[in-house]
Write a protein that binds this DNA or RNA. Structure first.
Lengths: 191, 191
DNA sequence: GTCTATATCGCGATAGAC
DNA sequence: GTCTATCGCGATATAGAC
């Protein structure tokens, strides 16, 4: 692994454990076993390190949320998507935790993130609409679909933060409860 | 208004606009029209300023979420509670935005917040259970009540952050959509 | 690519006069 | 209570040798 990649791994762990704001470039360099000067050879500044990690996250989303093309999706596809989502969100938990601050301080990242997120949500709403057409969800109008999709999306995005507020430390247990909450939100609409 | 209070007002505005991490005590003093030294006369450090603002927030929660004692609560009580909640959350929007970081760096605040929040959520779940007993919500078991309450609580806590991620700038419009999402989440369970 | 050394800056916090 | 002045520190970032 290149020193650059080692720096990213070290930065990810530090950001996840302690928060972006309190982790300095010196900390990252030390944890990665390289000099501060070398870190600045690979990255223009701290913002660039965050941006590189964000791109890793976006790549994961792209790769892991491809829907089955050859068959009709089912409700258990949703469940496995939710789990995958929680797992990725956990790996990059620093990101959502400090997201509003990060977007404020890096307009380019903000634009990039909003593009990725908007496409993701549009796809998910589309999927929910598809469930109605396939008879998996009860018939409902566009507005109801939109509200349901938005509710589910909110749970997906913020459940981990909610766990941190609870003081929950066991990720697996916390994740299961999140899956339960989300499925229960869809439950009344199942056909 | 005392200089101390002016400092708190200035700090609140700066924190809301720019985020706690990037606002220094010097910024706060300047915005409040007092000297840095004076700021430190009134507050031990920056953490103490955040803690004082947090106490203001907790006071608001205490005062504004008293339920009507003399009559059975209705679903429209819920709606007005949600609106009140969003309005307070907006006034102190820095708080939830930076909350995980703040709790990490101030264990005392963490304990205090968790106490307030746990009591608040317990009360809300209780209220939902009451709705079932009063026949406002359809009969359901404890687990279903808990999951529903948790979902509604999540929307209440994180809707504003979700708006920031959307890039939504109109608070009133964003709030209305939040109310819609929350009421739609309860809707299937109405008797 | 990687290092050491260092310039520069601004922050948190304190001292001491008034 | 309020001010001015300042200390000490650690952060980001760069220069220049290897």
């Amino acid at each position: 692994m290149s020193k650059r990649d080692e720096a990213l791994v070290a930065a990810l762990e530090l950001f996840n454990d302690r928060g972006v704001a309190v982790v300095s470039t010196n900390h990252i360099a030390e944890a990665a076993g390289i000099s501060p000067g070398n870190l600045y050879y690979h990255f223009r500044n701290k913002e660039a390190i965050v941006a590189a990690l964000a791109e890793q996250l976006f790549d994961r989303w792209d790769r892991e949320f491809a829907l089955p093309e050859e068959r009709t999706p089912t409700i258990s596809d949703i469940e496995s998507m939710v789990r995958t989502n929680f797992r990725i969100a956990w790996e990059f938990r620093f990101f959502h935790r400090d997201l509003v601050a990060l977007l404020r301080q890096d307009p380019y990242l903000a634009e990039r993130f909003r593009g990725v997120r908007d496409r993701g949500f549009a796809g998910f709403r589309e999927l929910c609409g598809g469930f109605v057409r396939f008879g998996i969800l009860r018939p409902m109008d566009r507005r109801a679909v939109d509200l349901l999709a938005r509710n589910c999306w909110l749970i997906s995005e913020f459940w981990l933060q909610s766990l941190e507020l609870d003081g929950e430390t066991d990720f697996d247990m916390g994740m299961e409860r999140g899956v339960e909450v989300l499925l229960q939100a869809m439950n009344p609409y199942l056909a």
